[in-house]
């Protein structure tokens, strides 16, 4: 494969965690936010925590930024294929976790609205999904550390 092509793949790999993570956050926060707005029409108080729950999928963008910065140190052409693989796959995990976490948040908002005492438990599924995003994030950092010359790797 041509060197410019390989370099392009490497650059895509660097930007992918942020790009895909942000899309996941957009989809997730939109779902949660819409549910929160609907629930506010039906409840008399506790609006803050509804909006708070709907913002949970924002963290995927933050994880994406951290992974991107960790791989964006000194770019080496021999690390480009590895960067593409790690960045794209981590980004996909962040995208889906953000999207589906938003659905969990919407369900939590819907449940809390009718039964406020289940607020803590209803957020648990969203927290579990967040856990998987954290796994994808942490192991992307560890693997990126092993790439030649990226993030201080060998």
């Amino acid at each position: 494969m041509d060197e410019p092509m390989v370099e392009m793949l490497g650059r895509i790999g660097i930007y992918a965690p942020l790009f895909l993570g942000a899309i996941g956050s957009i989809l997730g926060c939109a779902a949660g936010g819409q549910a929160a707005c609907g629930a506010m029409l039906d409840v008399e108080g506790g609006y803050g925590r509804l909006i708070g729950v709907s913002a949970l999928p924002s963290s995927q963008t933050i994880y994406g930024i951290v992974v991107m910065l960790s791989m964006n140190g000194s770019f080496q052409i021999q690390a480009a294929p590895g960067m593409f693989a790690i960045g794209t796959l981590c980004g996909l995990a962040l995208l889906f976790s953000g999207w589906f976490q938003g659905k969990c948040c919407a369900s939590a908002i819907h449940a809390t609205k009718s039964k406020p005492e289940v607020f803590g438990l209803s957020v648990a599924p969203a927290a579990i999904v967040e856990g998987f995003a954290v796994f994808a994030f942490v192991f992307a950092l560890i693997l990126a550390g092993g790439l030649p010359s990226a993030a201080g790797g060998s």
Binding site: A30, A31, G32, Q34, A35, A36, C37, G38, A39, L41, D42, A106, I109, H110, K113, S114
Partner: peptide
């Protein structure tokens, strides 16, 4: 199309 706002605005039956 999404129905999050509408469904969340309806009280539980």
């Amino acid at each position: 199309q999404s129905y999050y706002t509408l469904m969340a605005s309806l009280p539980q039956l």
